[in-house]
Amino acid sequence: MFKFHIFLLILLLIALLGVDVFLIPNVVDFSFKNLEDLFILNQFRLPKAITALLTGSSLALSGFILQQLFKNQLAGPYILGVSSGASLFVALFIILGASFPIFQSLNVSVAGFLGAILVLIFISLLSFKYGNGYLILLFGVIIGMITGSLQTLLVAMASVGELKSFTMWSMGSFSQVIDVDLIVLSFSAIAGIVWAFLLMPQLSILILGNEIATSMGINPKRVSFSLLVCTGLLTGVTTAFCGPIAFIGIAIPNLVKLLFKTVNFRLMLFANCILGAIMALLGDIVASLSVWGFQVPINVTTTLIGGPFVIYILFKKRK
């Protein structure tokens, strides 16, 4: 039954990949008479689709892990301020020119990862002290506001060139992740997904509570810490390259729960990755449609698709 669901979702994913690469915003001329078409396909459309796929998967998986760890259906990398933390560090990097002694694309990823992990550690400490209820969501929103105002301060200090590059990045985009950047993004996303896959049985046993999990041979603190680092890697690096992308991390895990209704977390991991990629590709396809006459920022489409769904979840929960 579940295998059939996954099979259908994979088919949908492949179809959307095809549409995103070959059909939108205009149909690719497969004769490649014009070498420019081939260049656009290789250097723009294909990397953009792969970036959307990896980013959607990473964010949905991060959201799933955070919702399970904090036992809160509304947790997610964007709401908990993890994306904001990553954004702030990337902004610091772009605007203040702060750099780590490694090459460029790693610099941005390391900045994003550090920002994400710092917020995650902070939120975990709060959750340890005050529980997992609405309070951590509130803290997440406040962290988002604080990092937002710090970013505004940085923007005010920035030059025109830096300002444009930062503003474009903060609206979210899957384009412009090519060459080494794409390799770094692919490597970190795949590493994060494989790492999470290995930790899924432990995460599912944590449902029984930390004390019972301990009696079953699990170290809850170690597992939680590993999963937080994994989430930091997945969210931080994708945010560093594509900007803070809203709603995939909160909407998809809820949708997967509704569709699959299981605690087979390895299956849930695949479902989250596939559906996350589907939502990101869908967002990219809508954003790239030629009818707009310009490239719509990804955040606009993911929010318009994901927002109403999260409101539905809230109403459903209230009932």
């Binding site: 036992k71 029984l208 004390e211 009696s215 041979g217 699990i218 209704k261 605690v263």
Partner: peptide
């Protein structure tokens, strides 16, 4: 911790909050 889990099983009188288990 893993060796203990092969020696002792524990049941506590508490509930869990997970709809789809």
């Amino acid at each position: 911790v893993a060796e203990r889990a092969q020696l002792m099983a524990l049941v506590l009188n508490q509930k869990i909050d997970e709809p789809y288990i």
